[in-house]
Design a protein around this nucleic acid. Structure first.
Lengths: 194, 194
DNA sequence: TCGATTTGGTAGACAGTGTCTATGAGTGAT
DNA sequence: ATCACTCATAGACACTGTCTACCAAATCGA
């Protein structure tokens, strides 16, 4: 019983997120979203001039959701930087694997980047958190924190992508991402024992 | 003046690759490929029952191309494993960034994986090469070679993806991938000086 | 050599898509 | 009451992937 009266704009995004998690990315047609929202296919146009604008709004919701989750597992920052990074990595992988449709959409630059909605900037705050944690974790200092953070982000992202795609489970012959996550963190932050 | 008489099957793939590199992934409609190949829109159906089958064939061409390039830069195997891994990584990133459309298509599992064409297996030989090189490079032995190789592959892949998407250049504030590549390799294989 | 069959392509229909435009039903201000 | 404005509807258009009927040319068996 979600807010039936919350305005079409928000309802379209809400319905889109729902449809995305239920049926996947190919179900996110403009007309289908409108149908699920109970309006005509021309209605969304007032709030989202084009289909891509609507998809971008849905993706933005995903970035916000991911940001919230990360902030939550990071906690109050009293855990060690390394523990926080581990939590962040696990959170990132968990999100990617349990919200495949959304994660897919969030990085479909053919759908989102083309219109200059500044979606790339949405992930910047998250990256800053990452850089800060990396700096405080004091990795082997053969690279600057932003570079290490970038490489680490890429590592998490690539593992999420390839694991979700099925390549990594097939290649490594296991069905547990955890070893890959640990390997990635140990690699970028130095071996476990500090 | 490519082989005009090489059979429609091969010509469709060839035209598809061409169209993909020239116009991007969204130009790869069945009808447009048929148009460029000079046949009716129903013609491809004899060789590729569905649109996805044609796209998969094009992607397969991409995997083959990438495999060839990697094999070439690996060379005769007389360079040090670490140097070969560096060349492999650079090749992977270079391919991803100079063939964006193809790289994008190759990992669009929503387009390719759904039909069981065994496209995932296409990258297995490449992964075995990677595992072998990693084993011979003797990384800090806190993880088995397949795991290190998987994490490294994920790292290359993620960097390629996020860099191509524009997030990493924006986040790290540079326009050179090389530092990220070096950081990734040093991380997974241990610091440069062996 | 002749008829039959298979091969390989054409052409049209169908439902579905995103976008655009014309239309109209309400609502509030003057 | 009238005007203006907001917001949604409905239909058209071009395009898509798939399906089906058709057909011409080649191949094959006798």
């Amino acid at each position: 019983m979600s807010d039936q009266e919350a305005g079409l704009r928000a309802r379209l995004v809400e319905v889109g997120v729902d449809l995305l998690t239920r049926e996947g990315i190919q179900a996110l047609s403009l007309r289908e979203i409108a149908r699920q929202a109970g309006v005509s296919h021309g209605a969304p146009r007032r709030y989202f001039p084009t289909h891509l604008d609507l998809l971008s709004a849905i993706a933005r919701q995903g970035f916000a959701d991911l940001g919230d989750r990360v902030a939550e597992v990071i906690g109050d920052g009293r855990a060690s930087p390394r523990a926080q990074l581990m939590a962040l990595g696990r959170c990132y992988l968990d999100f990617a694997l349990s919200h495949r449709g959304m994660f897919e959409l969030m990085f479909r630059h053919d759908l989102l980047e083309s219109n200059q909605l500044g979606l790339r900037e949405t992930s910047l705050p998250l990256f800053r958190v990452l850089v800060d944690l990396v700096a405080r974790a004091q990795p082997p200092a053969d690279a600057a924190p932003p570079v290490v953070a970038g490489a680490l982000w890429g590592n998490l992202h690539g593992i999420a992508q390839l694991w979700g795609w099925g390549s990594l489970p097939l290649a490594t012959g296991t069905d547990d991402v955890e070893p890959l996550l640990r390997a990635a963190l140990n690699a970028h932050l130095g071996p476990e024992g500090r």
